[in-house]
Write a protein that binds this DNA or RNA. Structure first.
Length: 820
DNA sequence: GAGTTTGAAACT
DNA sequence: CAGTTTCAAACTC
């Protein structure tokens, strides 16, 4: 690994010739700034000159750099073909330096470096001929920035590099006032140093310098200016001329910088700080819960990828918010960002975090918790970032409103978004399907966004849904936080994502509590008694959630999951009669007296129609009634029967069928789904549908195939609860397949027994395989088929374009048929 | 706002 | 897994 320090090591073989330099007459900053971009550097130089003159009557030793001398002695400059004018300038600069060298500094500079490319730093040396530590600090800051932007997959690496940077800058800062210990651990040590300077001098104006330099250093690194030997002289001369001109024009007014300038500088610095603080918080958490460091790093990565608003919001939400979200993330070991990044950077499946048990929980909790954090943040009077955040939200909301296609996502991502979308919908007390602000809308990365593409490309099966979920989580935090703060209407317990509970005896630690169920802490506006759903009881909350999760992994999952209404299944389902909104309650309601016409009914409350998973009686759900009720109403309505026909989606199936949409690995989910009854029902349903729509297509639709192909898996444990995604993935592995799953006989028989129509739809090869033997061979072929077809998951088809999806499914059918 | 109704969640 | 109890939201007055 090459690192800049090594250059210095190589270059530092002989310390400073700067001892020979005459006393400083001019600030080294001016020399440094002379290398900045012409336009900006004029201002910078002008101000810096003033600043230094007024604040640093005697040069600060810390700003001397041995590199200046080293480069001359080693002739590195010549290697860069910097011509003599350049050298003269530099010489002049050097002579102005106070070279009261700190011996230890040289030593440290020498010692702190691994190997590196000399040329890499030569440019730097040439460019910032009269370099001082301030510039070094800026370099370090830039390195940190690059690190953040580069997005390290491994947080440890990040930490290590940060430490390196930290060490470097810390050593150089030794002569300065000591920094806040906590902040010294941050990657922003260089800025901390500047901070300390500012504090020491009690001169805010130094921020301006920081601003200028941090902006302009990058400009100055422009190879045309600094690295190109041919242009170097000319531009150098131009710079010098401009600087001279600037100095000539300098007057008192230059000292008084515009307020916005200072403000901007402060903001800039603070922004970096916040960013780094957040990462530090993540890192700290990560240390505590090692398995989550990746996610934190990934979160930071995502932020550095441009989601500054995320950063802003997350950090401004205060520690509790972060802790809440982080702790949840740590418990669930789910790292959407990680998945994306890891899949981007490597194919190592180990990096992929399994979706925790209760994927919905995580989604739920993450999203809600973050937004909750915003509430807490607000309550903590950390409101100074509020306006900007709201602005971001507003802008995003507007964007989403203007972009009706923003819901359009690939089948992979789209379903995930819809998942969160529905979650949000649910939390918003039944926002209509045509709701103006589907948070997800505004939060979805565009279908063609790099992120979306990446997701689609990298997670055909094992990648899972993570990123969209996380994107949702991250972004929904923006949306929901603003909703909570501004949209909460009067008395309703929930509106626009705002939960308010009234719990008296549950301590807000049961699903009775809407806040708890929604994955948010109770807030002041709650009327709960003896509430434990508060940040201070975080451990209790998390433990309780885990308990509930252990009972029902989907307990915290959204209760309503979206259907693709235009899919053949839905089309077949009662002729679309019962699905005004393309969603269904995950579990179905059980209404007896309300007729599903009141908000007692969860389906109705969620603005979704009842479905066959409901056990409601006398359903009159205005959003759609269950087929059972329709049968009661209209006995002639014959598509199905109680004995397992088309309409018979078991509740389990319903939920899982929707979860199917959550992941490209839905097949695996289907494996783990449900008992044999459900499987058989589904099989029958699918078979019939398949036969109806495409007689020979049968089970070959990729999204249906898992159900049909894996009935034996359905009965694996007699449990329909998903325990973990990793387990599901393991099922995909031949080696890990339990024997019971390899035994294809019994469950399949059950399916066949209950599926009179299976002959119509059962793929011949599969049927023959499964029928002729119970060996896993047939199953393997099936699974192989699944694995092959999964990547065919419609990658870029907008979710909303369900028609296209149907067509694609049909095409897949044909393709699969052709393959077989 | 108090009381009632309702159905989900929790418990057995 | 079914029946019962508990609970809090929804609803009514």
């Amino acid at each position: 690994m090459n690192s800049p320090e090594s250059n210095r090591v190589a270059a530092t073989s002989s310390p400073s010739s700067s001892n020979k330099s005459p006393p400083v007459q001019e600030s080294p900053f001016s020399n440094f700034l002379s290398n900045l971009s012409p336009i900006k550097s004029v201002k910078a130089v002008r101000y810096t000159q003033r600043f230094l003159e007024s604040n640093f009557p005697t040069p600060l030793p810390v700003f001397t750099s041995p590199r200046i001398d080293l480069q001359r002695e080693t002739g590195l400059l010549e290697r860069n073909n910097i011509v003599e004018e350049d050298s003269n300038i530099r010489e002049q600069c050097n002579t102005q330096l106070n070279v009261a060298q700190i011996p230890s500094l040289d030593k440290e500079v020498q010692s702190c470096s691994p190997s590196g490319s000399v040329d890499e730093y030569l440019a730097d040396i040439v460019e910032v001929d009269c370099t001082h530590s301030a510039h070094k600090q800026l370099q370090l800051a830039n390195e940190v920035s690059q690190m953040l932007e580069g997005g390290f997959t491994d947080p440890k690496e990040t930490i290590r590099k940060v430490d390196t940077v930290d060490n470097r800058s810390s050593r150089e800062a030794r002569s300065l006032t000591s920094s806040n210990q906590a902040e010294q651990n941050l990657p922003l040590t260089s800025l901390n140093l500047v901070d300390d300077l500012v504090d020491l001098r009690n001169d805010e104006s130094f921020n301006v310098f920081l601003k200028i330099t941090s902006e302009d250093v990058n400009d100055s690194v422009d190879p045309d200016v600094n690295l190109n030997p041919a242009l170097g002289v000319q531009q150098y001369e131009q710079h010098a001329a401009q600087i001279d001109e600037a100095f000539e024009d300098s007057d008192d007014s230059s000292r008084a910088l515009p307020k916005e300038f200072v403000k901007e500088a402060n903001h800039h610095q603070r922004g970096i700080r916040r960013h780094l603080h957040f990462e530090a918080a993540l890192a700290c958490k990560g240390v505590a819960t090692g398995n989550t460091t990746n996610s934190r790093a990934s979160l930071t990565n995502l932020k550095s990828l441009g989601l500054s608003h995320v950063e802003s919001r997350a950090t401004s939400s205060g520690g509790e918010a972060v802790n809440y979200a982080q702790s949840r993330a740590s418990k669930s070991s789910f790292s959407p960002f990680e998945v994306v990044r890891s899949t981007q950077n490597s194919r190592n499946p180990v990096i992929l975090s399994p979706i925790p048990s209760g994927m919905g929980l995580h989604l739920n909790s993450t999203v809600k918790s973050v937004s909750l954090g915003t509430d807490m943040f607000a309550s903590k009077n950390l409101t100074r970032y509020r306006s900007s955040q709201d602005k971001v939200v507003r802008e995003r909301s507007n964007d989403s409103a203007e972009d009706p296609n923003s819901t359009s996502i690939s089948a992979v991502t789209g379903t995930m978004y819809s998942y969160a979308d529905i979650d949000q919908q649910e939390s918003q007390a039944g926002v209509a399907a045509s709701s103006d602000t589907y948070p997800i809308n505004s939060l979805n990365p565009p279908c063609d966004s790099p992120l979306a593409r990446t997701e689609q490309q990298v997670i055909p099966c094992e990648g899972r849904i993570s990123t969209p979920q996380n994107a949702d989580s991250v972004e929904e935090l923006n949306e929901e936080s603003s909703n909570k703060k501004r949209k909460r209407p009067s008395n309703t317990s929930e509106s626009h994502g705002c939960k308010r509970c009234n719990c008296k005896r549950s301590k807000c630690l049961k699903l009775y509590c809407e806040c708890f169920a929604a994955g948010v802490y109770c807030v002041d506006s709650c009327a709960c008694v003896n509430c434990f759903n508060k940040p201070e009881y975080e451990d209790t909350v998390l433990d309780t959630r885990q308990q509930i999760e252990s009972r029902n992994p989907l307990a915290f999952a959204p209760k309503v999951v979206k259907h693709d209404t235009d899919s053949p299944a839905i089309i077949m389902e009662a002729g679309n009669r019962n699905t005004p909104s393309s969603a269904r309650h995950k579990r179905g309601c059980n209404c007896k007296k309300s007729k599903c016409l009141k908000k007692y009914c969860e389906c109705y409350q969620a603005n979704v129609g009842c479905s066959d998973g409901c056990r409601c009686e006398g359903c009159q759900n205005s959003f759609g009634t269950s087929s059972e009720c329709r049968r009661v109403e209209n006995p002639s309505h014959e598509v199905s029967g109680k004995d397992g026909s088309i309409e018979q989606f078991s509740p389990t199936w319903k939920g899982l069928a929707d979860i199917r949409n959550l992941a490209p690995c839905s097949g695996a989910l289907m494996f783990a789904s449900s008992n044999i009854r459900d499987c058989s029902k589904v099989s029958q349903t699918k078979l019939q549908r398949g036969s109806s729509i495409q007689p020979q297509a049968g089970s070959l639709q990729w999204n249906y195939s898992p159900v049909i192909l894996t009935p034996q898996l359905c009965d694996s444990k007699g449990s329909h609860e998903l325990t973990s995604d990793s387990a599901l993935c393991d099922i995909m592995e031949d080696e890990d397949m339990p024997e019971i799953l390899k035994d294809t006989s019994t469950p399949l028989k059950a399916v066949k027994a209950s599926s009179p129509n299976q002959k119509q739809v059962m793929p011949p090869h599969y049927r023959s395989d499964s029928q002729r033997s119970s060996s896993p061979h047939g199953m393997r072929s099936v699974r192989k088929f699944i694995l092959q077809t999964m990547p065919a998951f419609p990658p870029l088809t907008p979710y909303s374009n369900s028609k296209g999806r149907v067509n694609q499914k049909e095409n897949n059918q044909k393709d699969n048929i052709g393959n077989h």
